[in-house]
Design a protein around this nucleic acid. Structure first.
Length: 373
RNA sequence: GCGGUAUUGGUGAAGUGGUUAACACGCCAGAUUGUGGCUCUGGUAUGCAUGAGUUCGAUUCUCAUAUAUCGCC
């Protein structure tokens, strides 16, 4: 069956939405943050640890999995869920972003994209049909359309031509899609151009996808204001009874601002990448556990109910990261993912009580300190 | 005891009679937004064993001392 979104309640003062998503692998509440498991694993975590975080859904990647181990092997294993022993909902990204962000040289034609494998330099080709074929075989719960993800700095004419092509590719994706157990989401692009975002959104919605995502807002080093603006240009044109997914966004404050603008789900590599590099989120801002001041700090990372904070100290985690022990990355990954998922939990409560804006202001005051906002 | 060689930051070391003493590791700090899993960017010796001398100028040349190391008795 296709995923089913149910809107439970809207925040009175914002576009914030409380809802549920029903899938073949269970139902979860939204807003929700999706941990990223590019290569069929959320780096350093076991499926049991992911489940313990109350992660409603995780993300895996078409590009990486078709290169290695190959979608046929995963299909032979019985699909992605069985292959990785994860029996919760999984969304697969189409590979569109990776082709543009890390495979080069880029040779983009109407037919698709020719690129070199980052693993061994093999010349490969990804098209809408191919991206869907792979995702059908992976048998994820939600597949994404294969889109072009141009840099936010692209000029108006390039962006316009690009979203037209992404729309044509979206139609091809829909035609190629043959897995009745799998939903397919369309992707809105258009950079920071209001009319292009509106056009991309309305045209994509006309195709009647199972859900919609907003892409292209987390590519460059753009300002947060631009990002929020791009969401505001897109979200109002998306149907109320379908999921809205903001791709690649996961800074704590960006999640809150995204929900305020009507987004339901997010994904981002940043909590796990920061963890591997020794950073931890706390209610009072991001900390670098490598800092000397934590050397003899025998308190937990934060006031927090996660496995890491219940059992380990900053001093110990710092030692592990300094010594390059993988258990350190794991403890920080658990904490950082728990932190973001917990934010979505607090957001849901705030929407129930119509105080999402108040929640945001309180969060910012504590997270950034009183001086900055 | 005699003779040789050496002594540069936390570590391993490069180097020159003359502006800011290379590089690496470490250390300190920062970055990271649909993940190429140990990445990227900064900072980090006011001083070249100590003392004296030669010189316009010495970490670089000379002498003494200390320490280390090798060889010989």
């Amino acid at each position: 069956m296709k995923v089913k979104y149910t809107l439970i309640k809207k925040d009175k003062n914002t576009q914030g939405r409380l809802g549920t998503i029903k899938t073949n692998y269970g139902t979860f509440e939204t807003p929700m943050f999706m941990p990223v498991g590019t290569q069929a694993t959320v780096k350093t975590l076991s499926p049991e640890e992911i489940k313990a975080l109350d992660a409603g859904i995780i993300l895996a990647n078409t590009y990486h999995l078709c290169l290695r181990p190959g979608e046929d092997i995963i299909a032979k294993a019985g699909g992605l869920h069985k292959f990785m022993n994860y029996n919760g909902p999984i969304l697969t990204d189409s590979g569109g972003f990776q082709v543009f962000s890390l495979a080069n040289p880029k040779d983009i034609t109407e037919e698709g994209v020719t690129f070199k494998s980052h693993i061994n330099g093999d010349k490969l080709f990804l098209s809408p049909e191919r991206a869907i074929e792979i995702q059908n075989k992976l048998d994820s719960d939600i597949a994404m359309c294969f889109d072009e993800c141009p840099p936010a700095s692209a000029d108006y004419n390039y962006m316009k031509a690009s979203i037209e092509r992404t729309l044509r590719w979206a139609e091809r994706c829909q035609k190629a899609h043959h897995n009745p157990q799998q939903s397919l989401f369309g992707i809105v692009q258009g950079g920071y151009f209001e009319d292009l975002r509106k056009y991309s959104a309305t045209q994509t919605v006309k195709m009647n996808f199972d859900g919609y995502s907003i892409g292209g807002v987390a590519n460059d080093n753009e300002s947060k204001e631009n990002m929020y603006q791009a969401i505001e240009y897109s979200a109002p044109y998306l149907p109320k009874d379908k999921i809205r997914y903001l791709m690649g966004v996961g800074d704590p404050i960006d999640i809150i601002e995204g929900v305020i603008r009507g987004v339901d789900i997010f994904d981002c590599v940043i909590p796990t990448r920061l963890a591997r590099h020794g950073h931890a989120y706390t209610k009072r801002g991001k900390i670098n556990i490598l800092n000397n001041k934590y050397k003899e700090d025998f308190t937990p990372l934060d006031e927090c109910n996660c496995y890491t904070c219940q059992n380990y100290t900053k001093s110990y985690i710092r030692h592990l990261i300094v010594a390059n022990e993988t258990f350190g990355s794991r403890l920080l990954s658990i904490h950082n993912l728990n932190f973001l998922i917990n934010i979505t939990k607090e957001i849901r409560t705030a929407i129930k009580e119509d105080r999402l804006l108040e929640y945001r202001d309180n969060f910012k005051e504590l997270y950034y300190g009183k001086d900055k906002t």
